[in-house]
Design a protein around this nucleic acid. Structure first.
Lengths: 166, 166
DNA sequence: CTACGCCTTCGAGCGCGCTCGAACGCAAAC
DNA sequence: GTTTGCGTTCGAGCGCGCTCGAAGGCGTAG
């Protein structure tokens, strides 16, 4: 499958709500070019990069999702691999994957290459979950738009008329 | 805006994942024809209709979202208006509106017709929230699909290459 | 008469994902 | 030398949305 396909689909799906937010581009493009990551980063830098709090980063570490080295002062030093993993983790969190599943996935990664098939299963399952959620939300969106268009309070004309009006 | 427009958009957005689930149709069509609702329903009937637990229905009542009458035995009797409101409430919950906002909205409804503009504001804001969430999820979906297609573990080729491949 | 099943109220508990506060360490700035 | 600022660990707390359990009432079936 061509990369362009995916890009195009994502862009198309953006619809009529104006240009991409900087944040959206950020996440789509994988937070810029991961090639020019410094060798190591501080917790504040990673927090800024991922737009999450240092508290949350420590929490992810406690949860066993990443191992992070310390410098001479005991301060965290995130190497490129840790940062890459955290980019992945935050993307998955953002898309609604529960911590539980993330822990499972990471345990597979850490268990070695023979777990690749199972990792793919997890990803495929999550992909399907995202698709379901998008469909749910699209349906809800339609209902809300309809309600706005024909507003009549909580007991006003409701979406059931949609079916009849077909 | 024509009803058909909304219907078509919802249907189009369903994409390539097979036919609509019964549940999806259920919710899109507003749980069937609300016209043939019985005059009153028991808690079990409403729970079945909305696919939520009686516990949750009692919780919504405690939360002040609906008032429900009692029969001679103290059992809840949901009239058509209560059911219609609960249909609305569960749809909004499903689309991610927090209880807090739902309480606010319902307080507006109960406050009378002069709150209609503010109710519309709430709905429009929620609509925008849903749209943002759909866009977020679409982006995440693209990332996950890309990862599945080019799988290389949590540190494998990641979506940042998407930007470069443009 | 008793058991079953569904209902009631009330308050407590839970799973999730953070989020925070306390108490402290180290280092550069003033 | 003290203040400022950023970091550390640890455990507790929180907001959300349910979810459950206990203790009991009522009506029908056997």
């Amino acid at each position: 499958m061509a990369t362009d396909d995916l890009m195009t689909r994502a862009l198309d799906a953006l619809g009529d709500d104006g240009p991409l937010s900087a944040e959206a581009i950020h996440h789509l493009a994988g937070l810029g070019d991961l090639g020019d990551l410094p060798g190591t980063m501080t917790i504040a830098e990673v927090a800024g990069l991922l737009d999450i709090s240092p508290h949350t980063l420590r929490y992810y570490e406690r949860a066993g999702l990443v191992e992070v080295a310390r410098d001479g002062n005991g301060h965290r030093l995130y190497d490129a691999e840790a940062v890459r993993r955290l980019v992945f983790l935050t993307r998955m969190r953002l898309s609604g994957m529960p911590m539980r599943d993330l822990r499972h996935y990471i345990s597979l990664v850490d268990a070695g290459a023979h777990t690749v098939p199972e990792r793919l299963e997890v990803l495929v399952e999550h992909r399907d979950t995202i698709r379901r959620r998008i469909r749910e939300l699209t349906l809800s969106l339609t209902a809300v738009e309809y309600k706005i268009a024909t507003y009549g309070g909580s007991a006003g004309p409701d979406v059931q008329t949609l079916g009849a009006a077909r």
